[in-house]
Design a protein around this nucleic acid. Structure first.
Ligand SMILES: [Zn+2]
Ligand SMILES: [Zn+2]
Ligand SMILES: [Zn+2]
Ligand SMILES: [Zn+2]
Lengths: 150, 150
DNA sequence: AATTTGGTGTTACGCTATAACATGCCACGT
DNA sequence: ACGTGGCATGTTATAGCGTAACACCAAATT
């Protein structure tokens, strides 16, 4: 993402937080900025490394707490199979989403398919299960790597 | 699972491996047995601990290599959001499956819904993505914990 | 017999995540 | 202004998950 878009996204996040009485503090804002800057999912320790470039030595809890906040407010998603974090593509409308992850280059795309969301929710309901969170990730090869393979 | 069923499952696994020219060695068989014995997903280090009770000190690679084999042959599944391993409920028919995991008690159920499998595969295809592996996990509250909460 | 292959043992290390406690900051009621 | 309670952050230590690299051995292949 380019600088211009990042600023816009940060402003929007700021507004959303204010509306909810939540505080997008400098640390949290900076972590979100770092995640927005990368087009691929970023690991917690990579974020920590970047954070430290500005503020000297910091411990993992600092970044994990910021991540916890950003996750709670759905400003970012966690990609479970990569143990990494990615900016949400539509923070105005909290949602469940799905991810396509390339095993070759790591490219990760956020998708939204209501059919899958509903199927999974219904599947749980039928069993008396109250689904709170969905993790749906498809791993494989992206179009680019797919054609490069041959 | 009770001892009787475990033996049956192990025998079936043995047959399947032989058919494929794969070797279900003592270590691998033992790890599978441990996973079958637990009705909840088991972590690699818990398995390692059990393994050591019989064979003295062993390192993590021993158990991770066994897990790698069992996963490759679809005798077990990995529950990504728990970093734990669970026996497959139908090893005769390799498949993609989904999991319902209780955040409260850890109870984990393997489901099979072809609709979700197909939706996700098609979703990938539409984007030129070749889906090799699906991770579909729903976290929430199981029926028991749900009623216990009130 | 020599070579190859696959499985295991061993050591060491890296990455991911959290517990526990200390410190600092700010809003609020007095 | 003062104290206080709540929240965010800093700090240290440790737990949990996973793999690289190399050594060894036994069975299969030549
Ligand atoms: Zn999103
Ligand atoms: Zn790719
Ligand atoms: Zn299964
Ligand atoms: Zn439960």
């Amino acid at each position: 993402m380019i600088a211009r878009q990042i600023e816009t996204a940060l402003s929007r996040a700021q507004v959303i937080c204010k509306r909810r009485g939540a505080r997008l503090t400098p640390v949290r804002r900076r972590v979100l900025e770092l995640i927005l800057s990368s087009d691929q999912p970023t690991g917690a320790y990579a974020l920590l490394g970047e954070l430290q470039r500005g503020r000297g030595k910091l411990g993992p809890p600092t970044v994990y707490r910021a991540l916890e906040f950003l996750l709670a407010h759905k400003l970012i998603h966690k990609v479970e199979t990569s143990s990494a974090f990615i900016a949400c593509a539509d923070i105005e409308h909290p949602h469940e989403s799905q991810f396509m992850i390339c095993d070759d280059c790591g490219a990760t795309e956020e998708l939204r398919d209501e059919e899958i969301v509903e199927s999974l929710r219904r599947l749980g309901e039928r069993r008396g299960f109250a689904v709170e969170r969905q993790v749906v990730e498809a791993r494989g090869l992206c179009p680019a790597c797919r054609s490069a393979q041959r």
